[in-house]
C-alpha cells in the first residue's frame, strides 16, 4: 500500500448559535447535503462527491468554534498503533465508542498542545449522496450553491506550534509542506498526510483551542468567482477575496457562517510528495504568502477567530 496511516481529514464538528440558519447556510450556500440529525440535535452533513458518511457536524451551542477535528486512518490496527504512539509521546488518549456519531466506528480522541481536540478513526459507513461507481456520471446529484466537492482542511490557532509540528510529524507521520518563520519563532505550519498541500494548518496564537476556518474544495477559479457572487447575493459576511495564497497556491475566498465561524472555499494548490522540500516564508514576504495579490496581511485574518 503506497498510502498508509492517516489518509485524510474525515470530519469536523463545529459549534453554531442558530441551527436552522446554519443548516440553510451549509446546505443551500456551501452546497452540502444533510445526511441525518442525531437525537441530541447534532446535524451531520456531507458533500455529494464524498463517499464517507459525513464530513461536517454542527452542534447547537451558546458559543461558536471548533469541538474537534477527525482524520480517517487506513486500518483498524492503525488506531491501536497510533494510540500507543500518542500515549508514549505523553498525551492522554480517550476512546470514543463506535456510533457516538452515526456511521462512524470507534475513535481515539486527544487534545494536542495547541488546545485542539483531534480524533482518529478507521471505519465509516458510506451514505447518500455519494459518487457513483458503476458507469459513473461526473456527478450523481447536480451540484448547487458554491458546488463544494469536499471538506478539505482546517486552520487552527493556538500556542505551542513547535510542539504541534513535532507531534504531527513524529507521531502521526504528517509532513510539513510549508512554514512561516518570524524573527521571534515559528508563526505557522501547513501539514499534509498525503499529496494535498495541506490537510491541517496551525498559526501561533496566545489563546488555546481557537478556530480560524474550515475549507471546502471547489473545481476551479471560476467556481471561486461563483462563490463570491453567492456571498454577496445572500448577504453572507465577507472576510477577504477572491484572491490567491502564495502558500499552497490555492485560489480562495473567505467568509463567515451565520455563527461567525470562518469558512473558505478554494480551488487548486500544488501536489505534494514526501520527497519534496518544505517551502518556507519569512517576515519580509509573509503578506504575499498569505494573500498573493494584496501582498499585505490584514489584522482581522490574524486575530478574528472563534
Amino acid at each position: 500500500m503506497a498510502l498508509t496511516g492517516v489518509l485524510r481529514p474525515g470530519f469536523i464538528q463545529l459549534r453554531v448559535l442558530d441551527m436552522a440558519a446554519s443548516v440553510e447556510y451549509y446546505t443551500k450556500r456551501i452546497g452540502f447535503h444533510v445526511v441525518t440529525k442525531g437525537e441530541d440535535g447534532r446535524v451531520y452533513l456531507k458533500a455529494a462527491d464524498e463517499f464517507d458518511h459525513h464530513s461536517l457536524v454542527l452542534r447547537q451551542a451558546d458559543t461558536a468554534g471548533l469541538d474537534l477535528y477527525a482524520f480517517k486512518v487506513r486500518k483498524d490496527e492503525d488506531l491501536d498503533s497510533f494510540k500507543k504512539r500518542i500515549e508514549d509521546y505523553g498525551i492522554e488518549v480517550d476512546d470514543v465508542r463506535a456510533g457516538e456519531q452515526p456511521g462512524i466506528g470507534r475513535r481515539i480522541s486527544f487534545v494536542i498542545e495547541s488546545g485542539h481536540r483531534i480524533e482518529l478513526y478507521a471505519q465509516a459507513e458510506m451514505s447518500e449522496p455519494k459518487p457513483l461507481i458503476h458507469n459513473p456520471d461526473v456527478w450523481s446529484v447536480e451540484p448547487h450553491g458554491m458546488r463544494a466537492r469536499r471538506m478539505d482542511h482546517a486552520l487552527l490557532y493556538g500556542p505551542n506550534i513547535e510542539k504541534v509540528l513535532n507531534f504531527f510529524v513524529k507521531v502521526l507521520d504528517f509532513e510539513c509542506a510549508e512554514r512561516v518563520d518570524m524573527p521571534d519563532g515559528l508563526l505557522a505550519i501547513w501539514l499534509t498526510a498525503g499529496m494535498k498541500a495541506h490537510d491541517i494548518a496551525f498559526v501561533n496564537h496566545p489563546e488555546p483551542g481557537k478556530f480560524h476556518h474550515v475549507a471546502f474544495e471547489l473545481e476551479d477559479w471560476k467556481d471561486v468567482g461563483n462563490a463570491a457572487d453567492i456571498i454577496t447575493r445572500y448577504n453572507i459576511s465577507i472576510d477577504i477575496g477572491p484572491t490567491r495564497h502564495g502558500i499552497t497556491r490555492g485560489q480562495t475566498i473567505y467568509f463567515f457562517d451565520p455563527s461567525g465561524n470562518r469558512c473558505e472555499v478554494f480551488a487548486g494548490g500544488y501536489t505534494y510528495y514526501p520527497d519534496h522540500p518544505t517551502r518556507t516564508w519569512d517576515e519580509k514576504e509573509i503578506g504575499r504568502g498569505i494573500f498573493y495579490y494584496e501582498r499585505q496581511l490584514n489584522d482581522a485574518f490574524l486575530s478574528v477567530v472563534t
Binding site: 448559535l17 458559543t63 461558536a64 463567515f256 451565520p258 455563527s259 461567525g260 470562518r262 482581522a300 472563534t306
Partner: peptide, 11 residues
C-alpha cells in the same frame, strides 16, 4: 473592530 459580523468572534 470588524470580524465575523455574525456574533461568533467577539471582536
Amino acid at each position: 473592530p470588524v470580524g465575523c459580523r455574525r456574533g461568533g468572534c467577539g471582536i
